[in-house]
Simulated scan of single mutants.
Amino acid sequence: MKKLFARIFGAFEPESARRGAPRLASDEFPRALYVIGDVHGRLDLLEALEEQIARHAGVVGEDIWVVLVGDVVDRGPSSAQVIDHLLAPPKWGFRRFCLSGNHEQAMLEAFESAEALEWWCRFGGIETLASYGVSISQLDPGARSWETNRAVLEAYIPREHVQFLSDLPVMIRVRSYVLVHAGLRPGIALKDQTDRDLRWFRHETDAAENNGWQSDYCVVHGHTIVERPLITPEQIAIDTGAYMSDRLTAVCLRSGQEPIIIEQLGPSQHN
């Protein structure tokens, strides 16, 4: 994955090395850039939305980019299958990237200690474990035998899935658009935003509350659930709570054009 990033984006931004997670930047805008909100284990909605995106883009090639803003795991029923899907080449021919969210971080940290595993289980990890065929009864989140718990995780969760999560960038900047999972902390330079800021910070999603916030960038993010997508000159919020709302949202960005919202509705939304 790092070789792909280097080929497409040239090089990681310098500050990424000292902060840990990759931060990518491109001054070349693709023909169209589609950004997808938090999937949270809803493979059904993701596959259907990608098909919608392919139809919307028309002729699909590597100049069409699709970026998932993170939190592809937890809470929904098919997290393992979502990662399998993201590891496979996109069937529609576009370039696809995924960002690291706070739930990806929590899943990785669950391998490190009993306390982190217990917290992840309460944070949405139980559903993810079930997607790998792990029942909570197989684990002892209370940590009487951490080595046993870790062995269960390593036996059921493929190493390539762990590596995939470990390699994810926390930011992709495309000209004046900054794509992150959670947001940018106001008043802090882009290079000084921490990985925690980019994975955890919550923006106000009331447009009236943001009237006074000025930035050189438009931040496109998920993390904070909105009933309807929010689009302002400084912020595009597209997490519509797919795992509970049955609605997955994307935004189409083209250089010099207004953003376009694309939504995929699940069965409950059609009743």
Rank of each mutant, 00 (worst) to 15 (best):
A250I: 05
V219D: 10
F9Q: 06
Y156V: 02
V162F: 14
V82H: 04
V60L: 10
A106P: 03
A17W: 14
E112F: 01
T249V: 05
N102K: 00
R19Q: 15
A106D: 01
I8D: 14
L230G: 04
F123L: 08
D239R: 00
L45M: 00
Y243D: 10
L248S: 03
P30Y: 08
I64M: 11
E127D: 13
G187Y: 07
A88M: 09
V180H: 02
A25M: 13
F5P: 08
N211E: 14
A110L: 02
I236K: 09
P77G: 04
F94A: 05
L46N: 00
G266E: 02
A155C: 05
R55W: 11
P30H: 13
F29N: 10
I8M: 10
K3L: 12
R7E: 14
V180I: 00
Q235W: 01
E51M: 12
R199I: 07
C121A: 15
G187R: 08
L248M: 04
A110R: 05
V219G: 05
A237T: 05
L230Y: 01
D44Q: 04
W146F: 15
R96L: 14
V39F: 01
R247N: 06
L179F: 01
R23S: 07
N271P: 10
S135I: 07
P90I: 00
M244Q: 11
L253E: 09
G124K: 00
W92M: 10
V66K: 05
V72H: 01
L49E: 03
A250F: 04
E15W: 07
I262A: 03
D140K: 12
G10T: 09
P14D: 06
A207P: 15
I262N: 04
K91T: 13
E204V: 07
D140W: 06
V226F: 06
A48Q: 03
Q52Y: 00
L117E: 13
V152C: 14
P229G: 03
W119S: 11
M171R: 08
S79T: 02
A80E: 08
E104C: 01
A48T: 05
W65A: 12
L49M: 05
Y156K: 10
G20T: 07
S176Y: 11
E109D: 15
